[in-house]
Design a protein around this nucleic acid. Structure first.
Length: 287
DNA sequence: TAAATTTGACCCTG
DNA sequence: CAGGGTCAAATTTA
C-alpha cells in the first residue's frame, strides 16, 4: 500500500469519525429528523465503501456486510437473521409439543455420529475464536441452526449453528451465539473450526454485479442501521476477544473501536477471510 | 416442495 | 448425574 493510499485512508477514517460525531450531535438535537439520519447514513456508507476499495481494490477485502448481503442473494438464502435470543422464537413454535417430542425416539438408531464428537470438538477448539458484539452481526457465512440450549446460570439460550454446506462440502465450521446482555444488547459468538466450503464470494463480482449508481448507498444498503458497523459508537461497542479462553484485550485495545466486530485467532493458519478484515483494521491504525 | 427452524431426546464428558 | 453439544422428526417458511 502506497503512502498516498495510507493518507487517503487516514483521511477517510477521520471523516468517518467526524460523521459519527455529527450523527451523535444530530441525534441529541431536537430537530433531528429522519431525513438527516438518512443523509448521515449515506455519508457513512460512502466512507465505508471508499475505505473498502482503498484497502484492497483487487483482492476483495470488502466489508463483510457487503459480501454477505450479496452472497445471500446469490445463494438464495433469505435475509433472515437468526433469532438468537430464544424468547422471540416462542411465537413461532407450536405450543403443543412440536418437534420430535411426541415421537418415541429411542435406542441406538442411526445416530452414529457421536463417536467422533470428542475428536471433532477437540479439533474445533484448536481454532476457536470468540467475539462479542453489540449487535447481531452477520459474519458473511451461511449458517444453519441445529440446536438451542438453555445454559445454566444464563438468562438467554445458546444457539448452535453449523455451516450450511456441511453436507455438500464437508465444511465443519460451527458457531455458538448467545445473548449475554440485554441493555445494551451484547452477543457472544464462538466460532469453532474454520470454513472449508467454497462459497466465499469473490467480491470483485460484487462490484461488477452492482455498478455504482448515482446513489452510493445502494452498494451498502444496510437494511437496519444496527448492522451498520459505522453506526456503532465506540462506547456502545465492547469488543473482547479471547482465544481458547485467554483474554486478548490488550491486543484489542489497538483495534479500531468503531469496528463492527473484532476477532482474533492465535493460529494464523486457520484464519480465513473473516479475520483478514481485522488485520486490515489493525493495519489502519499503524499509521 | 425444498430448505430452514424448532425442540425433545440422546450422547458424551467431567 | 448434571450440563452441554448434537441429532433428527415435526413443523414452518419461502
Amino acid at each position: 500500500m502506497s503512502g498516498d493510499t495510507k493518507k487517503a485512508i487516514e483521511e477517510l477514517v477521520r471523516g468517518r469519525e467526524l460523521t459519527n460525531q455529527l450523527r451523535d450531535l444530530l441525534s441529541k438535537s431536537a430537530g433531528y429528523e429522519s431525513g438527516s439520519e438518512d443523509l448521515v447514513t449515506k455519508i457513512c456508507n460512502t466512507f465505508a465503501n471508499s475505505l473498502s476499495i482503498l484497502r484492497n481494490p483487487n483482492s476483495g477485502d470488502y466489508l463483510e456486510l457487503e459480501v454477505c448481503q450479496k452472497r445471500r442473494k446469490e445463494m438464495g438464502c433469505d435475509g433472515r437473521k437468526p433469532e438468537d435470543w430464544g424468547e422471540i422464537q416462542s411465537s413461532k413454535s407450536s405450543p403443543s409439543g412440536s418437534g420430535s417430542g411426541s415421537t418415541p425416539k429411542d435406542t441406538k438408531d442411526g445416530r452414529g455420529s457421536y463417536k467422533s464428537r470428542k475428536k471433532g470438538v477437540a479439533q474445533a477448539l484448536e481454532s476457536s475464536r470468540k467475539s462479542i458484539s453489540s449487535a447481531l452481526t452477520d459474519d458473511g457465512y451461511a449458517w444453519r441452526k441445529y440446536g438451542q440450549k438453555q445454559i445454566l446460570n444464563s438468562i438467554h439460550p445458546r444457539s448452535y449453528y453449523r455451516c450450511t454446506y456441511r453436507k455438500e462440502q464437508g465444511c465443519l465450521a460451527t458457531k455458538q451465539v448467545q445473548m449475554i446482555q440485554d441493555d445494551p444488547p451484547k452477543f457472544e459468538s464462538i466460532y469453532l473450526g474454520h470454513h472449508t466450503c467454497k462459497n466465499t464470494l469473490d467480491p470483485s463480482h460484487f462490484i461488477l454485479d452492482h455498478p455504482i449508481s448515482d446513489d452510493p448507498s445502494t452498494i451498502l444498503s444496510f437494511a437496519n442501521k444496527q448492522y451498520n458497523p459505522f453506526f456503532l459508537s465506540p462506547n456502545q461497542e465492547s469488543n473482547e476477544v479471547t482465544y481458547n479462553g485467554s483474554s486478548s484485550s490488550d491486543y484489542l485495545s489497538t483495534i479500531d473501536p468503531s469496528a463492527e466486530m473484532s476477532v482474533l485467532s492465535a493460529d494464523q493458519d486457520v484464519i480465513s477471510g473473516f479475520e483478514d478484515s481485522v488485520q486490515d483494521l489493525d493495519e489502519l491504525l499503524e499509521f
